[in-house]
Amino acid sequence: MKARAGAKPAPPARAQRYKVGQQQIIRGDCLRALRRMEAESVDVIITSPPYNIGLSYRSYPDRKEEDEYLDWMLEVAHGLRRVLRADGSFFLNISGSSAQPWLPFELAVRLRDLFVLQNHISWVKSISVGEDSFGHFKPMNSQRFLHRGHEHLFHFTLHGDVTLDRLSAGVPYKDKSNIARRGHVQDRRCRGDAWFIPYETVRDRKQKFDHPGTFPVALPEQCLLLHGQEDAQVLDPFMGTGTTLLAAQRLGCFGVGIEIDPEYVAIARQRLREDLDAAEA
């Protein structure tokens, strides 16, 4: 029997585990699952937790009191720090809203005692250049606020000294004369800290797997390329519909995704299987 809309189903007494290729999915509460993971076993964490701005998740009430939400996220972060290796990267995608613009920064400040903010990346979802525009535009009916065209991607590390593969995550030079003139060995430069990664255009929520907070697979792919470790052990404690694991699979990494909602778990398993089948075809 399906849960009533907006109701939070009780998590299973025992976490359920699924394996698709090199990717492992744990259906259960992330705090419980993190406690069972081996310490210092993860190279890269990429995740987008609930934003606490009233999004309509199936199995999670996205409207806690702010201090309650921040305390909960801090508890999750303690678990993530325990499993992250000394040279690991933690990429946290989060956004506020026009009514709650401080929330991402409040969370980042709370995490200051656990991590170093090595890079702050702006994920640009839509942008206007001159009289042209690019990316997915979501209208906002307001006389006070601007359209929100970006989200935050905080890159945390334990000590702020993690070496990155900036060129693998980079872009070709626009002016090719810069290659020889500046002594570069290849036609690649750092992408910088503003990443334009638009969504594919969709017409309804079914095309986003009925999930209110998905991100394009190119976003976790760029994170993995930037960290630059082959065969990395990847973790997403708020897996959703499996986009981080999909990126890990395509780049030959080993992923673990944790998700409490059974329907999102089913979608993630299907996406991973279909992607494996397409790669083998």
Rank of each mutant, 00 (worst) to 15 (best):
R188W: 11
L276D: 10
E230N: 06
P237E: 05
P262T: 12
R271H: 02
Q222W: 03
A278L: 14
G213S: 12
D210Y: 13
L224P: 10
T244P: 04
Q249G: 04
R191Q: 12
D187V: 11
G255Y: 00
A247L: 00
M239K: 02
D193S: 13
D204W: 00
Q249N: 04
Q229L: 11
Q233R: 13
F238C: 05
V234P: 11
M239V: 10
C223L: 01
L272V: 04
R269S: 06
A194R: 15
H227Q: 10
A218F: 01
L251D: 05
R271A: 02
Q222M: 05
L225W: 11
D231P: 03
R188P: 14
P220W: 00
L251T: 09
D261G: 09
M239R: 01
V202I: 15
G252A: 10
E274S: 10
A279F: 04
L251F: 05
L251E: 07
R188S: 15
D261L: 06
Q207T: 08
I197D: 02
L235P: 13
D187I: 13
P262H: 06
R269C: 14
V234A: 05
L224Y: 08
E280V: 13
P237D: 09
F215L: 07
A268H: 02
L245C: 04
G257Q: 08
F254Y: 12
E230K: 05
C190S: 15
E274D: 13
R203H: 14
Q186Y: 07
F254P: 04
P216E: 04
G242C: 07
A218S: 04
D231C: 06
T243F: 03
Q233I: 10
Q229N: 11
Q229Y: 06
L224G: 12
R203E: 13
L235R: 02
L276M: 14
V256C: 13
Q222L: 11
L226R: 02
Y199I: 10
A266M: 07
P220H: 01
K208I: 12
P262R: 06
K206Q: 10
Q186E: 14
D210G: 10
F254S: 11
E259W: 05
T243W: 01
I197Q: 02
Q270M: 09
R205F: 10
G240L: 05
P237H: 07
I260Y: 08
R203S: 13
Y199N: 11
R273L: 12
H227F: 06
D231N: 12
M239W: 03
A194F: 15
I260A: 14
Q186F: 08
L226C: 07
A268Y: 00
R250A: 14
V202K: 09
A194H: 14
L226Q: 03
E221M: 06
G255P: 08
L251C: 05
R189C: 15
A218G: 09
A266H: 04
G257V: 07
